[in-house]
Amino acid sequence: MLIRKLFKFENAHIVRGCSTRRCSHSIHGHSYKVELLLEAHAFDNGQMIYDFGLLKGAVRELIDAFDHAVTLWSGDNLDYLAAMCRHSERWVLIPVSPSAEQFSRLFFCLVDAVLALSDMANGEADVQLHSVIVHETDTGYAQCFREDALNPRMGLIDLHAIEFAPAITAPWRDPELFERIKHGQQIPACLEELA
């Protein structure tokens, strides 16, 4: 069985090397929608695949980190990167170009890591991330499956190569959340669900 949870955020980027000049040479933004599809073949104690409320903690904070931020590719021009970090309080540096396709892979890796490190304390069984869909526009989206997220031909998504601006992580309930995830530390149940 599959369940779906939708998240939304506003973000700016440049997608270097793409065919459309206005996308590859000008900072522009999108109203993104991110759909997480979780899969399991048994129910928890509440007869659910996974309580939607549990996605309001670490998962929501990581996706919300991209809201009203500029996403930067670490392989871009160094002067551009420095200027963007200097002039924007909210930025995220990622190891791949911020296309819809790479965003879907990136979110797959982030959410998959959170699920792997979360305490399954309510009888959840074999819950896993099935896929991630990132809508860049109302008419275009990219969908990532596990084999895509781990495909080296599409670029390595190394969590250690992702950097969130201090203005993003400082207000988090646990400002060390992403450090915990990168180092494979269990996410305490109190951090999984936010009020």
Rank of each mutant, 00 (worst) to 15 (best):
T169Q: 15
T71D: 06
A189N: 01
G53D: 10
D158N: 15
A65L: 02
N122F: 02
P166T: 03
V114C: 12
E192T: 14
E89Q: 14
V132T: 10
E35H: 15
A12K: 03
K33Y: 11
I27Q: 08
A121D: 09
V92K: 12
M48N: 09
V114I: 12
A65N: 06
G29I: 12
E89K: 14
V15Y: 04
I49L: 13
V132D: 06
F7T: 06
G57Q: 02
Y50G: 10
P95G: 12
F9S: 11
P95M: 13
F103I: 09
Y50A: 08
M120D: 00
L129S: 08
V96Y: 06
P171T: 07
I94G: 04
D119T: 06
T71F: 03
Q47P: 00
S104V: 11
D138W: 04
L156K: 11
I14S: 05
G155E: 05
A195P: 15
L129G: 10
F107I: 04
S99A: 13
N77P: 00
E179W: 01
F103G: 07
A65M: 07
H87R: 12
L115D: 01
R16G: 13
Y80R: 14
A116M: 06
S19D: 10
F103W: 06
I133D: 05
V134P: 02
E147A: 09
E124S: 04
V59H: 03
D119E: 08
K182F: 02
L93V: 11
P175W: 01
A170H: 10
R153M: 12
R22T: 03
R173K: 15
I27T: 08
A12I: 00
R21M: 01
Q186R: 06
E35V: 13
C109D: 00
D174T: 05
H41M: 02
R22N: 03
L177H: 04
R153V: 09
R153C: 11
R22A: 11
F52P: 09
A58T: 15
A82C: 02
K5F: 09
S131Y: 07
Y50V: 05
T20K: 10
L55W: 01
L129T: 09
H30D: 04
T169K: 13
D148Y: 07
E147D: 13
V132I: 14
F7G: 08
F9N: 11
Q143T: 13
A116I: 00
K8E: 15
Q128I: 03
V96T: 14
A125S: 08
I3S: 12
Y141F: 15
L72C: 04
